[in-house]
Structures are given as structure tokens and as C-alpha cells.
Computed example of a mutant assay.
Amino acid sequence: MAPPPRHGCMLRAEVVICIFLVIAPFSMAIGVNYGTKGDNLPSPAKVAAFLVTRTNIDRVKLFDTKPDIIRAFAGTGISVMVTASNGDIPGLATQNGADAWVATNIAPYYPATDISLVAVGNEIMDTADKNLIGNLVPAMQTLKAALVTAGYSKIRVSTPSSLGILVDAQPPSAARFRDVLDVAIFTPMLQFLQKTKSPLIVNTYPYFGYNGDTLPYALARSNPGVLDTGTGITYTSMFVAQLDSVYSAMKKLGFEDVEILVGETGWPTKAMDGQIGVSQVEAAEYNKYLIGAVSSGSGTPLMPKRKFETYIFALFNEDLKPGPVAERNFGMFQPDFTPMYDIGIMKDPVSTYTRCR
């Protein structure tokens, strides 16, 4: 998606340091996306040790199956979601291909490394590649069968999608899956997820949907809210509305009981000059709200009392990523592990941050 319009200016960074001292640690497991498109990042072994000893993060999501990264998490107690590349999908749709993929990418590491889920590709619907789209669900099915045959039945299988899979996404009650894909792809996919007790993975970014006027709604600050005339519900959080939009689309196909997993969400600390609402302050504000929202157990208006497995984007800034400035600046930590801000995920937040002006 295109970045939001540019307005206004950033707040002073000193404010963030004061915020660090007053946030309580979260009580629900929160994951983080660990990308590696940078030329200044620490070794996987150092990353794993840091997460274990210094943070409360107990799960990571990888965008590949790099052996050194998967091995680094062996014996750490951190669960790992790995990703089969988009190019692997046609091969995974065959039993021999799926068996070989499991033998190469899972068997050498599991169960020493707690691989919890295999994500098949990433945002495949956005590629418009008919071959990948057509093979996606068969690849998921065949890969799951290969995992079961190998004795790894506890490993879930799913695929991450952007909110581009929806049409009429606002208001939430009107949301539905895209025409043709609803029957051809999402009905069999949701049947598979329901049968295997695996989640539908969605990447939800209020950041990509806000402008200067809707910033309070995107950050869930005090705001008048947005009325869904279909249900009479007034939403004061864009993130919650996005989740309910996904739920509404699933319900229209009869699969409202399938779990929703938030594969990516976050807020950058830097964007184009003059863009309102982008600094360490807003990034900390959004992610602090996010943790409370997904772990509180209150759920959403359409999914009361649900909790959502959620992976914040991202662990580090990645200076080699293409695209707008913001794409390289979603990181919560600098390469030396200095936090960009704190949202309660550090085990020693008070001792680490002593400056407050």
C-alpha cells in the first residue's frame, strides 16, 4: 500500500524516555517479526540470547528458513514461525516436494527448536500470480500431510495475507472476501484451517490506512469513533475495526470459528520529512495499545473475549529494504539492542532507562 499523506512535524524524543518508566510488562505472549534485510544486524545467536535474557518476547516470526537463525533458537523456549518462500509453493503442492521440504527445513531443527507454524508464502493474493494463487491451498494441504507423516503433527500450517483480500472492508459488517477468490481460494482454505485448528493469518496495519484527520482513530486515542450502520457499533480503534472486518468476511462463508492470527502490525519511527504521526512517540503509543488490546481477553465487538496471537513488525530497522523510508524504520531495537522505545517488553525497563527530562 502507499504511505499515508504527509503533514505536520515530529515530537521531541525526550518524551519517549519518560514514557519508558511507566509502562507495566504485558501478561500475554507477544511475538516479533525478525527480518534480516540489513547490513548491520547482530548475529542470530546474539539475537536469540538477547530475546531470552533481556525481553519478555517468547515467539518470533521468520520470513525464511535460514538454518543459522532456526538453530539459534534451539533450546531457548522461544517458539518460531518459519516461512516457505513464494517460489516453493508449486513444489509443495506435490507430495514428494512437500516431503522433501520437510526433510530439509524442519527435520534437522525440530523439536530442539520449537517450530510452531509454517507460513506458506507471504501475501500471495497480492502477487496476482495465478500459478502461485492456484497452488496455495494444495501446497498448504500437502505440506500439512507431510508434517503429519514425519511425526510433526503439532506444527500448524497457514499463509499470511494483507487486508487486500477484502472488499467493502469498511464498515466491518460489510466486509467480504474478494469475488472469485472467496469461493475458489478462501472457502477451501478456511475449511483446511478449521479442520487442522490452524489460524487465518492477516497483516493489519492502521499505519497504512490513516491520514492527518484519522490519526487518533489509528492510534486508538480519544476520538468520536466511526459508526458501523450495519451493526450500530461505533469503533474507536482502526485496528479493532480491521479485525472485525476479517471476522465478518469469514462469517459470510460460515467459518467464524477459525482463529485469527495477526502476522504483522506495527508503526514506524521515521518516514518522509513532515509526515504527521511518525516518531518514537507514536510507535511506542501504538504498540503499547496493541499489546493491551490483543492480550486483555476483551476481544472485539464481534469477537468478544478473544485473544489474538500477534507479531509486532519488527525487531530491527532494515536498511536494505526497498520502498518508502518507513519500510526501513519499523524496528523496535537498534543493531546494538538499544531500544528505540519501550512498551513493557524489557525485563529491566526501569534500570535500563534512567533519564527523564
Rank of each mutant, 00 (worst) to 15 (best):
F192S: 11
I185M: 10
F177T: 00
A169K: 05
G134S: 14
P160E: 08
A146Q: 03
L190Q: 02
T159R: 03
S198Y: 01
S198W: 01
T127I: 15
F177P: 01
A119P: 04
S198R: 04
V180D: 13
A184M: 13
V148S: 04
L181I: 01
T149P: 13
L136R: 01
V167A: 11
T142N: 15
D126L: 15
T142H: 04
I124H: 02
S198H: 05
I185W: 08
M189A: 11
P160N: 14
Q170G: 08
Q194D: 15
I155W: 04
M189D: 01
A128R: 14
T149H: 12
T149N: 14
Q141F: 03
N131S: 12
L193P: 03
A119C: 15
A150T: 13
N122L: 07
G164E: 12
D129A: 07
P160K: 10
T142S: 09
Q191M: 08
A128M: 14
F192N: 02
V157Q: 01
K195G: 12
T187L: 15
R176P: 06
K197M: 10
G134V: 05
P188Q: 13
L163A: 13
I155M: 08
N135C: 08
A119E: 10
V120I: 15
P172V: 02
S153V: 14
R178N: 12
P172R: 06
A169R: 11
L163S: 13
V157H: 06
A169C: 09
T142P: 00
A139I: 03
A175T: 00
K197D: 08
P160L: 11
A145C: 07
L132D: 08
V120M: 03
T127G: 07
V180K: 11
A174N: 12
D179G: 10
A184P: 10
R156A: 13
L132G: 03
K195P: 08
M189C: 04
S153M: 14
A145W: 10
S173T: 06
T149L: 12
L181A: 03
R156L: 15
L136Q: 02
S153F: 07
I133L: 10
N122K: 12
I155T: 04
S162K: 08
N122Y: 05
T187Q: 15
F192T: 03
A146P: 01
A146V: 05
A139M: 11
